[in-house]
Design a protein around this nucleic acid. Structure first.
Ligand SMILES: [Mn+2]
Ligand SMILES: [Mn+2]
Ligand SMILES: [Zn+2]
Ligand SMILES: [Zn+2]
Lengths: 136, 136
DNA sequence: ATTGTATTTTGTAACCGTTACAAATATGGT
DNA sequence: ACCATATTTGTAACGGTTACAAAATACAAT
Protein backbone atom coordinates (compact mmCIF):
# COMPACT_ATOMS: atom_id res chain seq x y z
CA UNK A 1 0.00 0.00 0.00
CA UNK A 2 2.44 2.71 1.07
CA UNK A 3 5.18 3.39 -1.40
CA UNK A 4 8.20 5.63 -1.03
CA UNK A 5 8.20 8.59 -3.37
CA UNK A 6 11.60 10.21 -3.64
CA UNK A 7 10.94 13.31 -5.76
CA UNK A 8 7.26 14.20 -6.04
CA UNK A 9 7.76 16.58 -8.97
CA UNK A 10 9.57 13.92 -10.91
CA UNK A 11 6.97 11.33 -10.00
CA UNK A 12 4.15 13.50 -11.28
CA UNK A 13 6.02 14.11 -14.54
CA UNK A 14 6.50 10.38 -15.03
CA UNK A 15 2.75 10.00 -14.79
CA UNK A 16 1.97 12.71 -17.31
CA UNK A 17 1.11 15.43 -14.81
CA UNK A 18 2.70 18.86 -14.98
CA UNK A 19 4.07 19.40 -11.49
CA UNK A 20 2.62 22.73 -10.51
CA UNK A 21 3.21 24.04 -7.01
CA UNK A 22 -0.31 23.15 -5.85
CA UNK A 23 -0.21 19.67 -7.34
CA UNK A 24 3.11 18.95 -5.69
CA UNK A 25 1.89 20.14 -2.31
CA UNK A 26 -1.31 18.12 -2.56
CA UNK A 27 0.49 14.96 -3.56
CA UNK A 28 3.07 15.56 -0.85
CA UNK A 29 0.25 15.73 1.64
CA UNK A 30 -1.06 12.36 0.49
CA UNK A 31 2.29 10.58 0.81
CA UNK A 32 3.32 12.37 3.98
CA UNK A 33 0.35 11.27 6.04
CA UNK A 34 -1.18 8.34 4.16
CA UNK A 35 -4.26 9.10 6.22
CA UNK A 36 -6.97 8.79 3.54
CA UNK A 37 -7.97 12.41 3.90
CA UNK A 38 -11.08 14.23 2.83
CA UNK A 39 -10.80 17.21 0.52
CA UNK A 40 -11.37 19.43 3.48
CA UNK A 41 -8.52 17.92 5.49
CA UNK A 42 -6.11 18.60 2.65
CA UNK A 43 -7.44 22.10 2.16
CA UNK A 44 -7.20 23.07 5.81
CA UNK A 45 -3.64 21.81 6.08
CA UNK A 46 -2.37 23.55 2.95
CA UNK A 47 -4.20 26.86 2.95
CA UNK A 48 -1.90 28.45 5.56
CA UNK A 49 1.07 27.82 3.26
CA UNK A 50 -0.85 28.62 0.06
CA UNK A 51 -3.25 31.35 1.14
CA UNK A 52 -4.80 31.67 -2.31
CA UNK A 53 -5.57 27.97 -2.51
CA UNK A 54 -9.04 27.17 -3.69
CA UNK A 55 -10.99 24.09 -2.72
CA UNK A 56 -11.82 23.69 -6.37
CA UNK A 57 -8.12 23.21 -7.06
CA UNK A 58 -7.99 20.43 -4.52
CA UNK A 59 -10.94 18.75 -6.20
CA UNK A 60 -9.53 19.28 -9.69
CA UNK A 61 -6.13 18.01 -8.70
CA UNK A 62 -7.41 14.89 -6.98
CA UNK A 63 -9.60 14.09 -9.95
CA UNK A 64 -6.56 14.47 -12.19
CA UNK A 65 -4.56 12.17 -9.93
CA UNK A 66 -7.33 9.61 -10.12
CA UNK A 67 -7.52 9.87 -13.90
CA UNK A 68 -3.78 9.26 -14.05
CA UNK A 69 -4.17 6.43 -11.57
CA UNK A 70 -1.74 7.69 -8.96
CA UNK A 71 -4.53 8.14 -6.43
CA UNK A 72 -7.50 5.99 -5.49
CA UNK A 73 -10.90 6.98 -4.22
CA UNK A 74 -12.08 5.37 -1.04
CA UNK A 75 -15.83 5.15 -0.70
CA UNK A 76 -16.73 4.05 2.81
CA UNK A 77 -18.20 7.10 4.39
CA UNK A 78 -21.58 7.94 2.96
CA UNK A 79 -21.03 11.64 3.14
CA UNK A 80 -17.51 12.37 2.03
CA UNK A 81 -15.05 10.89 -0.36
CA UNK A 82 -11.57 10.04 0.78
CA UNK A 83 -8.38 9.74 -1.18
CA UNK A 84 -5.47 7.34 -1.03
CA UNK A 85 -2.03 7.60 -2.62
CA UNK A 86 -1.76 3.85 -2.17
CA UNK A 87 -3.20 2.41 -5.34
CA UNK A 88 -2.41 -1.25 -4.92
CA UNK A 89 -5.18 -3.56 -3.76
CA UNK A 90 -5.47 -3.40 0.00
CA UNK A 91 -8.15 -3.21 2.63
CA UNK A 92 -9.38 -0.48 4.96
CA UNK A 93 -10.81 -0.20 8.40
CA UNK A 94 -12.90 2.76 9.42
CA UNK A 95 -13.52 3.50 13.07
CA UNK A 96 -17.09 4.41 13.90
CA UNK A 97 -15.90 6.59 16.79
CA UNK A 98 -13.04 8.68 15.45
CA UNK A 99 -13.72 8.14 11.72
CA UNK A 100 -10.07 7.45 10.95
CA UNK A 101 -9.35 4.98 8.19
CA UNK A 102 -6.43 2.57 8.55
CA UNK A 103 -4.89 0.28 5.98
CA UNK A 104 -5.44 -3.45 6.25
CA UNK A 105 -3.00 -5.79 4.56
CA UNK A 106 -4.68 -8.12 2.13
CA UNK A 107 -3.05 -11.27 0.85
CA UNK A 108 -5.04 -11.89 -2.30
CA UNK A 109 -3.80 -15.47 -2.48
CA UNK A 110 -5.64 -16.13 0.78
CA UNK A 111 -8.94 -14.88 -0.54
CA UNK A 112 -11.21 -17.02 -2.62
CA UNK A 113 -14.19 -15.23 -4.07
CA UNK A 114 -15.54 -16.83 -7.22
CA UNK A 115 -16.88 -14.09 -9.48
CA UNK A 116 -19.42 -15.49 -11.92
CA UNK A 117 -18.43 -16.02 -15.56
CA UNK A 118 -18.68 -13.11 -17.97
CA UNK A 119 -18.03 -10.61 -15.24
CA UNK A 120 -14.99 -8.48 -15.92
CA UNK A 121 -13.46 -7.29 -12.65
CA UNK A 122 -11.47 -4.07 -12.73
CA UNK A 123 -11.47 -3.13 -9.05
CA UNK A 124 -11.62 -5.01 -5.77
CA UNK A 125 -12.49 -3.35 -2.49
CA UNK A 126 -12.41 -4.73 1.01
CA UNK A 127 -13.32 -2.70 4.03
CA UNK A 128 -14.35 -3.09 7.60
CA UNK A 129 -15.99 -0.95 10.22
CA UNK A 130 -15.85 -1.04 13.96
CA UNK A 131 -13.74 0.43 16.73
CA UNK A 132 -10.07 1.09 16.15
CA UNK A 133 -7.28 0.26 18.58
CA UNK A 134 -7.05 3.90 19.72
CA UNK A 135 -10.71 4.00 20.68
CA UNK A 136 -10.69 0.66 22.49
CA UNK B 1 -28.30 -12.78 1.08
CA UNK B 2 -31.86 -13.08 -0.22
CA UNK B 3 -34.37 -14.30 2.30
CA UNK B 4 -38.00 -15.19 1.79
CA UNK B 5 -40.41 -12.94 3.62
CA UNK B 6 -43.90 -14.40 3.86
CA UNK B 7 -45.89 -11.56 5.41
CA UNK B 8 -44.18 -8.19 5.27
CA UNK B 9 -46.49 -6.55 7.81
CA UNK B 10 -45.83 -9.32 10.29
CA UNK B 11 -42.12 -9.17 9.61
CA UNK B 12 -42.00 -5.46 10.32
CA UNK B 13 -43.91 -5.93 13.56
CA UNK B 14 -41.49 -8.62 14.68
CA UNK B 15 -38.73 -6.08 14.24
CA UNK B 16 -40.40 -3.35 16.22
CA UNK B 17 -41.72 -1.36 13.27
CA UNK B 18 -45.33 -0.34 12.98
CA UNK B 19 -46.42 -1.60 9.58
CA UNK B 20 -47.87 1.49 7.96
CA UNK B 21 -48.97 1.33 4.35
CA UNK B 22 -45.92 3.21 3.12
CA UNK B 23 -43.50 1.15 5.16
CA UNK B 24 -44.99 -2.09 3.87
CA UNK B 25 -44.83 -0.93 0.27
CA UNK B 26 -41.25 0.21 0.62
CA UNK B 27 -40.14 -3.01 2.22
CA UNK B 28 -42.07 -4.99 -0.36
CA UNK B 29 -40.15 -3.16 -3.05
CA UNK B 30 -36.86 -4.17 -1.47
CA UNK B 31 -37.70 -7.86 -1.24
CA UNK B 32 -39.48 -8.01 -4.57
CA UNK B 33 -36.55 -6.80 -6.65
CA UNK B 34 -33.49 -7.23 -4.43
CA UNK B 35 -31.89 -4.76 -6.80
CA UNK B 36 -30.06 -2.52 -4.34
CA UNK B 37 -32.10 0.51 -5.32
CA UNK B 38 -31.50 4.18 -4.78
CA UNK B 39 -34.11 6.25 -2.96
CA UNK B 40 -35.16 7.64 -6.29
CA UNK B 41 -35.76 4.21 -7.80
CA UNK B 42 -38.05 3.29 -4.95
CA UNK B 43 -39.86 6.60 -5.12
CA UNK B 44 -40.45 6.47 -8.87
CA UNK B 45 -41.83 2.94 -8.66
CA UNK B 46 -44.19 3.61 -5.78
CA UNK B 47 -45.48 7.10 -6.44
CA UNK B 48 -48.00 5.98 -9.10
CA UNK B 49 -49.63 3.71 -6.52
CA UNK B 50 -49.20 6.17 -3.64
CA UNK B 51 -49.64 9.57 -5.31
CA UNK B 52 -49.10 11.48 -2.08
CA UNK B 53 -45.83 9.71 -1.35
CA UNK B 54 -43.03 12.00 -0.29
CA UNK B 55 -39.37 11.32 -0.90
CA UNK B 56 -38.80 12.27 2.71
CA UNK B 57 -40.92 9.31 3.72
CA UNK B 58 -38.72 7.01 1.68
CA UNK B 59 -35.64 8.42 3.39
CA UNK B 60 -37.23 8.26 6.84
CA UNK B 61 -38.44 4.73 6.32
CA UNK B 62 -35.14 3.42 5.03
CA UNK B 63 -33.31 5.04 7.92
CA UNK B 64 -35.75 3.36 10.28
CA UNK B 65 -35.18 0.01 8.57
CA UNK B 66 -31.45 0.48 8.96
CA UNK B 67 -31.80 1.39 12.62
CA UNK B 68 -33.82 -1.78 13.14
CA UNK B 69 -31.25 -3.69 11.11
CA UNK B 70 -33.60 -5.14 8.53
CA UNK B 71 -31.93 -3.16 5.76
CA UNK B 72 -28.29 -2.47 4.97
CA UNK B 73 -26.69 0.51 3.33
CA UNK B 74 -24.48 -0.15 0.36
CA UNK B 75 -21.83 2.47 -0.22
CA UNK B 76 -20.17 1.88 -3.55
CA UNK B 77 -21.36 4.68 -5.71
CA UNK B 78 -19.86 7.99 -4.68
CA UNK B 79 -22.99 9.92 -5.38
CA UNK B 80 -25.93 7.93 -4.15
CA UNK B 81 -26.62 5.52 -1.37
CA UNK B 82 -28.18 2.19 -2.14
CA UNK B 83 -30.21 -0.08 0.08
CA UNK B 84 -30.31 -3.83 0.51
CA UNK B 85 -32.87 -6.00 2.29
CA UNK B 86 -30.20 -8.68 2.46
CA UNK B 87 -28.42 -8.01 5.72
CA UNK B 88 -26.15 -11.03 5.94
CA UNK B 89 -22.52 -10.61 4.94
CA UNK B 90 -22.17 -10.91 1.19
CA UNK B 91 -20.36 -9.19 -1.62
CA UNK B 92 -21.43 -6.88 -4.42
CA UNK B 93 -20.46 -6.19 -7.96
CA UNK B 94 -21.23 -2.87 -9.58
CA UNK B 95 -21.12 -2.53 -13.34
CA UNK B 96 -19.39 0.59 -14.57
CA UNK B 97 -21.59 0.65 -17.67
CA UNK B 98 -25.15 0.05 -16.47
CA UNK B 99 -24.56 0.84 -12.76
CA UNK B 100 -26.49 -2.22 -11.62
CA UNK B 101 -25.32 -3.93 -8.46
CA UNK B 102 -25.39 -7.72 -8.23
CA UNK B 103 -24.88 -9.92 -5.23
CA UNK B 104 -21.72 -11.96 -4.93
CA UNK B 105 -21.68 -15.01 -2.73
CA UNK B 106 -19.03 -14.88 -0.06
CA UNK B 107 -17.82 -17.91 1.80
CA UNK B 108 -16.28 -16.31 4.86
CA UNK B 109 -14.43 -19.52 5.71
CA UNK B 110 -12.47 -19.09 2.48
CA UNK B 111 -11.32 -15.60 3.34
CA UNK B 112 -8.38 -14.96 5.56
CA UNK B 113 -7.88 -11.33 6.48
CA UNK B 114 -6.03 -10.85 9.74
CA UNK B 115 -7.36 -7.71 11.41
CA UNK B 116 -4.81 -6.31 13.85
CA UNK B 117 -5.32 -6.82 17.57
CA UNK B 118 -7.50 -4.38 19.49
CA UNK B 119 -9.63 -3.70 16.44
CA UNK B 120 -13.28 -4.51 17.00
CA UNK B 121 -14.93 -5.42 13.70
CA UNK B 122 -18.66 -4.82 13.42
CA UNK B 123 -19.09 -4.80 9.63
CA UNK B 124 -17.35 -6.43 6.71
CA UNK B 125 -17.78 -5.22 3.15
CA UNK B 126 -16.54 -6.73 -0.08
CA UNK B 127 -17.25 -5.22 -3.44
CA UNK B 128 -16.02 -5.27 -6.98
CA UNK B 129 -16.34 -3.09 -10.01
CA UNK B 130 -16.11 -3.84 -13.67
CA UNK B 131 -18.39 -4.92 -16.48
CA UNK B 132 -21.35 -7.16 -15.76
CA UNK B 133 -22.40 -10.16 -17.81
CA UNK B 134 -25.19 -8.21 -19.49
CA UNK B 135 -22.79 -5.55 -20.73
CA UNK B 136 -20.17 -7.99 -21.99
C1' DA C 1 -69.38 8.51 17.50
C1' DT C 2 -66.29 12.07 19.64
C1' DT C 3 -62.58 13.66 21.63
C1' DG C 4 -57.87 13.85 22.60
C1' DT C 5 -53.07 12.14 22.05
C1' DA C 6 -49.36 10.03 19.82
C1' DT C 7 -47.46 8.57 15.49
C1' DT C 8 -46.66 8.98 10.75
C1' DT C 9 -46.51 11.41 6.55
C1' DT C 10 -45.83 15.34 3.80
C1' DG C 11 -43.81 19.63 1.66
C1' DT C 12 -40.46 23.06 1.98
C1' DA C 13 -36.31 24.92 3.04
C1' DA C 14 -31.77 24.25 4.41
C1' DC C 15 -27.45 21.80 4.32
C1' DC C 16 -23.18 20.22 2.42
C1' DG C 17 -20.02 17.96 -0.65
C1' DT C 18 -19.03 18.38 -5.35
C1' DT C 19 -18.92 20.28 -10.09
C1' DA C 20 -19.54 23.85 -13.98
C1' DC C 21 -17.96 27.80 -15.63
C1' DA C 22 -15.70 31.99 -16.73
C1' DA C 23 -12.28 35.25 -15.18
C1' DA C 24 -7.71 35.78 -13.42
C1' DT C 25 -3.15 34.19 -13.07
C1' DA C 26 0.91 31.69 -14.25
C1' DT C 27 3.89 29.22 -17.61
C1' DG C 28 6.75 28.54 -21.59
C1' DG C 29 8.19 29.40 -26.27
C1' DT C 30 9.14 32.89 -29.77
C1' DA D 1 7.89 41.78 -24.37
C1' DC D 2 4.32 39.14 -26.61
C1' DC D 3 1.35 35.49 -27.42
C1' DA D 4 -0.76 30.93 -26.77
C1' DT D 5 -1.72 27.51 -23.51
C1' DA D 6 -2.37 25.52 -19.08
C1' DT D 7 -3.57 26.16 -14.36
C1' DT D 8 -5.81 28.27 -10.58
C1' DT D 9 -9.37 30.75 -8.45
C1' DG D 10 -14.08 32.38 -6.88
C1' DT D 11 -18.81 32.01 -7.45
C1' DA D 12 -22.86 29.95 -8.58
C1' DA D 13 -25.29 25.87 -9.44
C1' DC D 14 -26.33 21.07 -8.68
C1' DG D 15 -28.05 16.89 -6.31
C1' DG D 16 -28.65 13.85 -2.60
C1' DT D 17 -29.95 14.10 2.13
C1' DT D 18 -31.80 16.01 6.42
C1' DA D 19 -34.37 19.40 9.63
C1' DC D 20 -38.49 20.98 10.74
C1' DA D 21 -43.19 22.23 11.30
C1' DA D 22 -47.77 21.45 9.57
C1' DA D 23 -51.15 18.11 8.00
C1' DA D 24 -52.99 13.68 8.05
C1' DT D 25 -53.69 9.35 10.17
C1' DA D 26 -54.17 5.82 13.78
C1' DC D 27 -55.71 4.52 18.13
C1' DA D 28 -57.36 4.42 22.83
C1' DA D 29 -60.54 6.35 26.26
C1' DT D 30 -64.66 8.25 27.15
MN1 LIG E 1 -5.16 2.82 2.01
MN1 LIG F 1 -26.90 -7.45 -1.73
ZN1 LIG G 1 -11.13 5.21 16.57
ZN1 LIG H 1 -23.73 -3.76 -16.88
Amino acid sequence: MKQRIEDVGEFLKENGIKPSYQRIKIYEYLVKYYNHPTVDMIYRELVPKIPTLSKTTVYNTLNLFIEKKITAIIVIDENETRYDAGTSVHGHFQCNECARIDDIDIDLSKIEIPIPEHYEVSEQHFYFKGKCSNCN
